[in-house]
Simulated scan of single mutants.
Amino acid sequence: MASLKTIALDAMGGDHGPEVVVPGAALSLDRQPALRFIFFGQQSRIEAVLQQYPALAIKSRVVHTDLVIAMDEKPSQALRHGKGSSMWLPLEAVKAGDADAAVSAGNTGALMAIAKLVLRPMAGIERPAIAALWPTIKSECIMLDAGANIGASADQLAVYALMGAAMARAVFHIERPLVGLLNVGTEEMKGNEDVKGAHVLLKSADALPLTYKGFIEGDQIGQGIVDVIVTEGFAGNIALKTAEGTARQIGTYLKAAMTSSFASKLGALLASGGFRVLKEKMDPRRVNGGTFLGLNGIAVKSHGGADAFGFASAVDLAYDMADSGLIARLSADISDFHDRPSVAGAGGIPPQSSAGSALGKA
């Protein structure tokens, strides 16, 4: 039987606010009846939508706040003026133990900055990473970092591997996830020094709770040959945005080709079942939700423009991670990794002055 979990929601975040957040929560509740919700935001607006979903209303409560962080607000401004906002309060609820996870479709930079301040990074982690689900030919994989930090040391990349593996155990229920390092080639002499250093660390560290598969290239991301792909935030974000744009481009090409003549329209009609399956597989809403890994609590970022279906996917992800005991398991993995002779002998985790934070540039 599924355990009862409470999800704290930023009801005002994203492009649509409660008009998407509330229906999204209702969809997730249909799939996970053990869920409970706390909505943070403008009470009258939330309750106007919530009354359309009686089953959800019974399992929810609303906490009013008029303060909302704008989608274009700088992280530094959000930290100074955002306390008590619909974004800040869900994270406070997680910290206080009133909620098991927080979900917001709001400003990514602001959410990361506030989450880092409120929930604090785990011991041994200086820079949390954004982990994103990625559709593959086989099923799905996890990529991190998807944009939280620009650059990463060898030690950071090795820790990202542990964080991604912990998430894969939670979401995919794989005890020893396959992990690959994104690189410009699969040969050991290729890549920058940080990537090559992480390769050595992951190969040499004993008894890690993962199976390290070595380097993978960009054209292998969608092949599903690994469960976790590790990279730094600059390359990860570009790869993610490139894939999203390519998917839209292919969709545009297909639509144009299938409507270019009577024969092609007839062919499209006959192949409509196959196109429907293709559309479902390429639907980014199914994998909506980026997770801030490395914090003492679960925070999930939904795409700001997501509809109810997409937001429900982010809530589902938050539930899976909370239900799996992710935080405790990851904390133990990180502690074990830092205690290993191969890491301790190298001086542990050095000051991370060479890797910049994307938040500081937002």
Rank of each mutant, 00 (worst) to 15 (best):
D323F: 00
Q156D: 07
G109H: 05
M163L: 07
Q52Y: 03
F172I: 00
A247G: 05
A322S: 15
G345W: 06
T186K: 09
L330M: 14
I174E: 02
A243N: 12
L240Y: 02
G233R: 11
F37I: 02
C141A: 13
I349A: 07
S354E: 14
L35F: 13
G274F: 06
A129I: 08
Q352A: 01
I216Y: 14
P33K: 01
R285Y: 00
I130G: 04
V103A: 08
A99F: 10
G289T: 08
G236M: 03
I349V: 13
L359F: 00
E280K: 15
D219H: 15
V94D: 13
D194V: 03
S3D: 13
R120A: 11
A299T: 12
L144S: 00
A299P: 12
G356C: 01
G124L: 14
S272G: 02
M189N: 14
F172C: 04
P341C: 02
Q43D: 10
F234A: 03
D307V: 00
P209K: 11
E47N: 13
D339L: 11
N107A: 10
V228R: 14
A25F: 03
G310I: 04
I38P: 05
Q223H: 13
E92P: 07
K95V: 11
L79T: 11
T291H: 07
Q32H: 14
A198D: 05
K255C: 08
R329T: 12
M71D: 13
L270V: 13
P341W: 04
P209M: 09
G222Y: 13
A332R: 15
F337S: 09
A257D: 10
F292E: 04
P177A: 04
A131Q: 04
A161Y: 00
G82S: 08
A314Q: 01
K279D: 09
I238C: 05
D100R: 10
T186N: 02
V343R: 11
E140Y: 08
N149F: 11
A26V: 00
Q77F: 02
G273S: 11
L144C: 04
G236F: 09
K196L: 06
M163S: 00
D333V: 08
M1I: 08
G106I: 07
G345C: 06
D194E: 12
